[in-house]
Design a protein around this nucleic acid. Structure first.
Lengths: 114, 114
DNA sequence: TTGACATGTTATATTTTTATAACATTATGA
DNA sequence: TCATAATGTTATAAAAATATAACATGTCAA
């Protein structure tokens, strides 16, 4: 898989609120699949598992089966990767860029973005 | 709009490769809508505009009309926001967490995540 | 051993996103 | 002014993501 395709899986995986919440839940301690399903009991258990599979495919979750339970661990490395390669650089100097942008826009009267 | 809903729009907006490429293209200089459509000529012009509307709704693009051209500027602030609130903290200490995770996993034989 | 618990699989309906075409509007420059 | 360039709008088809139900498998503990 190309690095772009891989990076895209990570971005797509992070694009759903539930999945970011799952990441938050796993941040400090690993949890079993059942524990996660219980924490997100507003949605169906199979739906939770489907979301977990998306995270697992993006390598954001690593899981280990022990007996009949599956322990799901958060893997922060893919996030670190997009953080360093894309998000960090894009956010760098944001304040300066914003003020530069503002002076640009002051030259014109009509601003269309809300 | 709640801050979560707002944050979600940003994550969703970044979930498509074309849209990240549009962000890359606008990073150094603003571009007109036509220039962008030409740069991404593999896809339909209206499709490019639809993607731009997604970015604009997430406030990632601010555009100004001058005469009959529209200048599209990148607004890095929303990215800075998710960078600081979510991505940075999640990426912090990733290396340490990974090594801790590895020792955890060594205790078990079967690893299911690919 | 065996019942039930934890997890997994498959199928399918629903919703959202993406892509395109056809048509409309506005502004500029010859 | 008026042809055309640049952009915008609306409708719709196609693809992808999301949510759920029904059923299947493997494991533990009494």
């Amino acid at each position: 898989m190309s690095s772009e395709a891989y990076e895209d899986k990570v971005f797509k995986a992070l694009a759903a609120p539930v999945r970011r919440q799952i990441m938050d839940a796993l941040r400090d301690n690993p949890m079993t699949t059942g524990e996660l399903a219980e924490r997100f009991s507003q949605i169906d258990r199979t739906t939770v598992m489907q979301h977990m599979r998306v995270l697992e495919t993006a390598d954001l979750i690593i899981s280990v089966k022990r007996g009949r339970v599956r322990w799901n661990h958060l893997n922060p490395m893919p996030i670190k990767a997009i953080h360093e390669r894309w998000i960090g650089p894009m956010a760098a100097g944001a304040v300066d860029k914003l003020s530069a942008l503002k002076s640009e826009l002051e030259q014109t009267s009509e601003i269309s973005a809300k």
